[in-house]
Computed example of a mutant assay.
Amino acid sequence: MDSDEFIRLVGQRADVPEEQAGELTRATMLTLGERITGGEARHLAGVLPAEIAPPLVPPEDVAEKFGVAEFVRRVSERAGVGETVARRGVAAVFRTLGEAVPGAEFQDVMSQLPNEFQNI
């Protein structure tokens, strides 16, 4: 899957314009990079389109511990959207990630997140 298709799918799934889907994707990747270990972020970035991967790789290897509400709040702030749109965007990005990366890699990422992320 290339970056254009990734963004298009996020836009459709979140019911937002493609430009906003790009911002939601960037904000979600940046926040995911803060939440998972640096090693896992680098592995995931290695299987994503080059245009999507950079915000995912954090400057530090320390994963922060926070739940869905804080994740959505950070995405909302970074993308400049309300929390309802941010939640839809995060869900759309996660669903698209699940299709864009090999199953085992996506499961490795999800295993680092609390169970509440399964139902976002």
Rank of each mutant, 00 (worst) to 15 (best):
S3K: 07
E5H: 10
L9H: 09
G11F: 02
V16L: 00
V16C: 04
E18H: 10
E18W: 09
E18R: 11
G22Y: 03
L24K: 10
T25W: 00
T25Y: 01
R26P: 06
R26S: 09
A27V: 11
A27E: 13
T31F: 03
T31A: 01
R35T: 07
R35K: 07
I36D: 05
T37L: 00
G39L: 02
A45L: 10
P49C: 06
P49A: 06
P49V: 07
E51M: 00
L56M: 05
V57K: 05
E60V: 14
D61R: 12
D61M: 02
A63K: 13
A63S: 08
K65P: 02
K65G: 07
V68D: 07
E70C: 02
E70R: 12
R73K: 12
R74H: 09
S76N: 08
S76K: 05
G80Q: 08
G80M: 11
G82Y: 10
R88D: 15
V90S: 10
A91T: 12
V93Q: 01
V93R: 02
F94W: 04
P102R: 11
A104E: 14
Q107F: 02
D108F: 04
D108S: 13
S111L: 01
L113W: 00
P114I: 04
E116H: 11
E116K: 06
F117D: 12
